[in-house]
Structure formats: structure tokens, C-alpha cells
């Protein structure tokens, strides 16, 4: 009994020490990332390359899912709204839910699973095959050359992807509502414009997407850099990237929403 409780305390201590160590490592990593960010902007083509991989290559999935989400919103929203005789407000419903919540959140989740996991896999594999060590031995900091461009590529891509997602969603809602169901086009757009405020709704949505971009990119590069250099370690790191990103997005979304829209 005594021995068991001692070993429990010891395990608790070990996990606390381990946690603090990891926290310190992550902090150091973040500081280095910021210190070396200047280099990734001086050599812009490295960052542009990463915008291509995380932004341009995510474009298709973002456009298609945005369109479908908007179409579903159009169908469901109209179904509910017309019970109260306010089918005209469909535009408001679609636009508000997309700009405030669905745009940044769903685009963020898609971004994490499409681009975040790829970044983790790439950095993890470079670590496993000693490419990062080789770079370090050539007196080139892997954080400056590999990590920082990927981080900034993600941070820059994310707001654009979220905006494209929301736009496609509005188009999808318009397609279903106006073209197929026959809501009056004038009412659709004018009600939308009357209800959606630039600062309050659109800008806050953009701010959310920037925050999510930073969170997902940071998680993705850190998990890749920190992974155990084995095949299993890389696959675990990818899983962790997707899971932690999803949790981070949803938690941050709650926090941001409660600050932005509590009026």
C-alpha cells in the first residue's frame, strides 16, 4: 500500500517535471521561431513556396466545402425560416453564420487537416532522416530555414482561405435560396447587407481566422519539430497536430466569441 502510493507520487512528479520541461522547450522554440522570422521574410521565396503548399493546394477543398456548407445552410435555413414567414431573412442567416463562425472555424479545421498535417509530416520526416541535423551541422538553423517559412506560410494563407470559404458559402446559400427556391434576390441581398456589419461581423471573422492560423501553424511546426524520429513517432505527431488543432480552434473560438459578441 505504502509502496504503491509512493510510486504514484513519483509518477505524478515525473509527469509534472516532464510537462514543465516540454513547456520550456515549446517556449524556447517559439522565441527562436520569432527571432528567426526576420530571415524568412528577407528570403521571401521560401515563405512564398510554403504559401503555395498550404494555401494554393488547400484551395480546392476550401472552395468545394464552402459551397456545400452554404448550400446546406440555404436548405435548412429556409426550411426553418419560412415556418415563421421570414424566408427573406435567409441571406442574413447564411451570411451571419458564415462570417462570424463557420467560415473561420470550418476553414480552420480543414486547414489543420489538409495543410497542418502535411507540415508536421514534412518536418517530422526531415527530422527522422537527419536532414534537420545535417542542416544544423552546415551552420544553417533549421528553425530559420525550415520551420519559420512554414509557420508564416500558414499564418498568411489562413485568413484568405477563411474569406474564400465564407464567400463560397454565401454563393452556395444564394444558389439554393434565390436560384432554386426562389427567394427574392433583392430581399436576400438587402437584408443581408442591412444586418451584417463590416466591423462587427466581417472584421471579427477575419481576426478569428488570423488567430486560428497562428494556432494551427504553431501546433503543426512544433509537433513536427518535436516528434520522436521514427515512423511511428511521425504518425503520432500528425495525429496530435490534427487533434490539438481542432481542440485549439474550438476553444479559441469560444473565447474569442465571448469577447467579441457579448453585447
Amino acid at each position: 500500500m505504502m509502496g504503491r502510493s509512493v510510486s504514484f507520487v513519483r509518477r505524478l512528479g515525473a509527469s509534472v517535471v516532464d510537462g514543465i520541461w516540454r513547456l520550456g522547450f515549446a517556449t524556447r522554440f517559439m522565441v527562436l521561431l520569432l527571432v528567426y522570422s526576420g530571415q524568412s521574410f528577407r528570403r521571401l521565396h521560401l515563405t512564398i513556396r510554403e504559401i503555395y503548399f498550404s494555401g494554393v493546394l488547400s484551395l480546392l477543398i476550401i472552395i468545394v466545402s464552402g459551397l456545400f456548407v452554404g448550400m446546406v445552410l440555404g436548405l435548412q435555413g429556409y426550411e426553418t425560416l419560412q415556418r415563421f414567414g421570414s424566408g427573406d431573412a435567409l441571406g442574413v442567416l447564411v451570411a451571419l453564420s458564415l462570417t462570424r463562425e463557420l467560415g473561420p472555424v470550418v476553414a480552420g479545421l480543414l486547414f489543420a487537416s489538409r495543410a497542418g498535417s502535411a507540415v508536421t509530416a514534412e518536418i517530422g520526416l526531415m527530422k527522422t532522416t537527419e536532414q534537420l541535423k545535417a542542416m544544423d551541422m552546415m551552420a544553417v538553423s533549421p528553425i530559420a530555414r525550415v520551420v519559420a517559412p512554414r509557420f508564416w506560410g500558414g499564418v498568411i494563407s489562413m485568413p484568405f482561405l477563411a474569406a474564400i470559404f465564407s464567400t463560397m458559402g454565401v454563393v452556395g446559400g444564394w444558389l439554393i435560396g434565390v436560384v432554386f427556391i426562389g427567394v427574392d434576390a433583392g430581399a436576400f441581398w438587402s437584408q443581408m447587407q442591412a444586418a451584417v456589419d463590416f466591423r462587427y461581423d466581417v472584421l471579427n471573422g477575419v481576426i478569428k481566422s488570423v488567430v486560428f492560423g497562428v494556432a494551427v501553424s504553431l501546433i503543426a511546426v512544433f509537433e513536427g519539430y518535436d516528434c520522436t524520429p521514427t515512423a511511428e513517432g511521425v504518425s503520432r505527431a500528425i495525429t496530435r497536430t490534427v487533434v490539438s488543432s481542432a481542440l485549439a480552434i474550438l476553444a479559441l473560438d469560444f473565447v474569442l466569441t465571448s469577447f467579441m459578441f457579448r453585447g
Binding site: 514534412e122 520526416l125 526531415m126 532522416t129 537527419e130 536532414q131 541535423k133 545535417a134 542542416m135 551541422m137 552546415m138 551552420a139 544553417v140 530555414r145
Partner: peptide, 29 residues
């Protein structure tokens, strides 16, 4: 380290670059 060269066990070539770019890497950096 700029005056050291190191050959890793399995080469550790950068897999996203051509052979040419791999060799040019230290020169360009």
C-alpha cells in the same frame, strides 16, 4: 561549423531538392 563538413549515416540529403540544389545549398546559404 562552416569550416566543418559532416557526412551522415544515410547521407541525409534534402529530399525536396535535386542533387544539384543539395550540393549548392551550403554555397547559397
Amino acid at each position: 561549423r562552416r569550416r566543418m563538413g559532416m557526412l551522415f549515416q544515410f547521407g541525409a540529403l534534402f529530399t525536396d531538392m535535386t542533387v544539384y540544389d543539395n550540393v549548392a545549398f551550403p554555397l547559397r546559404e
